[in-house]
């Protein structure tokens, strides 16, 4: 097993964790973390599967991922602003679809 394969497996595990977290977490900030972890997993996948050219990593996927990191931060910043506003308006940090009728016992 070489290290590229190892990182592909890591990407798969991280993506799975991210999807699970996105579904299970109720706090929106955690959902945002889950999305970020999923995108990190895909970034790792893009770099780990890129075939090296003359033993150097391919520059094109690197530029792609660099752009991706910046876009992920932009989306995260906007998401956080939305969460803060939602909390101001409703006092809650969860979505109503996640608020199952709970019996607090």
């Amino acid at each position: 097993m070489d290290s590229a394969t190892l990182y592909v497996v890591a990407a798969a595990v991280l993506f799975g964790i991210g999807v699970d977290g996105l579904i299970v977490s109720r706090h929106l900030m955690r959902k945002l973390f889950a999305l970020n972890i999923m995108s990190s997993a895909i970034f790792i996948l893009l770099i780990a599967t890129a075939a090296p050219i003359d033993d150097l990593p391919d520059p094109v996927p690197q530029a792609l991922v660099l752009t991706g990191i910046v876009v992920a931060v932009s989306a995260t910043a906007f998401g956080l602003a939305l969460i803060v506003r939602l909390c101001q308006e409703t006092g809650k940090t969860t979505l109503s679809v996640d608020d199952e009728p709970e019996n607090d016992d």
């Binding site: 590229a4 497996v9 798969a12």
Partner: peptide, 29 residues
């Protein structure tokens, strides 16, 4: 859990199918 496992598996299959293949001579890089 099943959805997460499926998603992880999808990434794994995609990745393992493409990892360590030869560089194409016409690759953008």
């Amino acid at each position: 859990l099943p959805i997460a496992l499926g998603a992880g598996l999808l990434v794994a299959i995609l990745g393992l199918a493409t990892v360590n293949i030869e560089t194409l001579p016409a690759a953008a890089g």
